[in-house]
């Protein structure tokens, strides 16, 4: 029953779909609604949408766009980007989002997590932590809003978010974003063994073997961007998703 979930992560910028490399160099891929329609046909069990501009621009989620997206999703939808208040979360659930993802709003203070978990239940609250290695190879938490790393231990932060009421932790490796050379397995093993809630991992997936490696290190959810939107050595834009048989073979 508890097969690892395989989750495409789609990034929104100026109403369009983009893919980044190391949180930079965003490349326009196309229209988000078209992408959802393709993922509907592929019977994807879950989708993640992240608006990578909202918090940077200090604005709320684009509720109209999210509503359009939710209406097209024939699978549960998790949304992140620009969420800083309980009212945003309330509104997102009312327009058809199943889970919300908080990141920069809880770096310093986790009270939004506990407030939200109290009202909506912890299953629907995901905390995403962006992780970047410093010059000496030490993992640091990265804040994409001001482009700075924060002197906070990744595992300690994950645990305090868990204790505040998060239902899932998502770890996103900044340096591996868009590189497609594999997940940070050491980090996955460390975080998954240190928390008791499900861990979603993102950043680096380039092959189905990478999924298996992440699963073997304790990831419950395996998320990826490039893997699902690019094809071939020249990274042509082509949306794909492994067949149920392939997923069964590698992840059961």
């Amino acid at each position: 029953m508890l097969k690892s979930r395989v989750i495409p992560v789609l990034l929104l910028k100026n109403n369009g779909l983009v893919k980044t490399i190391a949180f930079n160099k965003s490349k326009y891929l196309g229209d988000p609604i078209n992408a959802i329609k393709i993922f509907n046909d592929k019977q994807v069990d879950e989708l993640i949408f992240l608006d990578i501009q909202a918090s940077k621009e200090d604005r709320t989620p684009d509720f109209e766009l999210v509503k359009k997206i939710a209406s097209e999703c024939f699978m549960p939808l998790a949304y992140g980007g620009g969420i800083s208040r309980v009212e945003h979360i309330q509104k997102l659930f009312s327009i058809g989002v199943e889970k919300i993802i908080i990141n920069s709003a809880v770096l310093e203070n986790q009270s939004l997590i506990s407030e939200a978990a109290e009202i909506f239940g912890n299953q629907s609250i995901v905390v995403c932590i962006d992780v970047k290695k410093n010059f000496w190879g030490k993992n640091q938490i990265f804040c994409h809003v001001n482009n700075k790393t924060i002197d906070l231990d990744v595992l300690e932060h994950a645990i305090s978010c868990q204790n505040a009421g998060a239902g899932e932790i998502m770890i996103n490796s900044v340096d591996r974003d868009g590189i497609m050379k594999g997940f940070d397995l050491e980090l996955i093993a460390k975080i998954s063994s240190g928390i008791s809630i499900p861990l979603i991992v993102c950043g680096g997936a380039g092959s189905i073997e990478d999924f298996k490696n992440a699963k073997d290190r304790g990831a419950s959810g395996i998320a990826a961007g490039s893997f699902f939107v690019y094809h071939g050595p020249h990274k042509a834009v082509l949306i794909s998703y492994p067949s149920p048989e392939t997923l069964e073979e590698y992840l059961s």
């Binding site: 509907n40 509503k67 939710a70 209406s71 024939f74 009312s94 058809g96």
Partner: peptide, 13 residues
Amino acid sequence: MGNLGSISNILKK
């Protein structure tokens, strides 16, 4: 009570 868009969209599908 809630967003009904996905119901009408899946029916259309």
